[in-house]
Simulated scan of single mutants.
Amino acid sequence: MTEERQDIVTEARSWLGTPYVHQASTKGAGADCLGLMRGVWRAVMGVEPEAVPSYSMDWSEPQGEERMWDAARRHLIAKPVKEAAVGDVLLFRMRDGRVAKHVGLVSQIKPLPQFIHAYSGHGVVENTLSDPWRRRVVACFCFPRKDM
């Protein structure tokens, strides 16, 4: 694991226990899944690359637009899901036929894959990437290098 990837995981783990708060991105006070990724980005990469518009709990489902996926493509580097590594960002489709609107960070591959995410009713947690979660993964991205 590169030092940069370890920094990403260490930062994400420092958010564990942060309560779930929709649209928030403040370590210890509140975050949703996107807010967690935004906070990790700020700590590891610096200034956020774009302002995040207000969003509802149903995201862009009524319009059927893949807004989170599109944003990930703009700022992260896409890679095959089967090549997911520690420090990578996973995008989840919570229901078949719906837009991808949940995001987490791979924190461990072996002995069991784990990921860190902010989940309604649970806050920021580290969970096993079990089959029910794994089958919802639709995309994988890595952070760009700091010098890019």
Rank of each mutant, 00 (worst) to 15 (best):
S60Y: 00
A85V: 08
I109H: 00
W59Y: 14
L76V: 02
A100P: 03
D58E: 15
A72K: 01
G17H: 10
S130E: 04
V125R: 15
R13P: 14
R13L: 14
M57G: 14
M68I: 05
W69S: 06
H22W: 15
W41P: 00
H75P: 05
L129M: 11
V125E: 10
A31G: 12
G30V: 02
L112F: 03
G64N: 13
K110P: 00
E66A: 11
K27G: 07
A71P: 02
V81W: 02
W15G: 14
V86C: 11
E66P: 07
L76H: 00
D96V: 15
C33L: 09
L91K: 07
R73T: 05
W41F: 08
Q23M: 12
W41K: 00
V106C: 05
F143C: 04
L16P: 12
R74C: 10
D96N: 14
S60H: 05
R42L: 05
A118M: 06
R38M: 09
D7E: 14
P53D: 08
G46Y: 03
V44A: 09
E61M: 10
A43E: 08
Q114H: 15
M68W: 03
L129W: 09
D58Y: 06
A43K: 09
W69I: 01
Q108D: 03
L90T: 03
N127D: 08
V44R: 12
P19L: 08
P132Q: 00
E83P: 06
L36I: 06
A139L: 05
S130A: 15
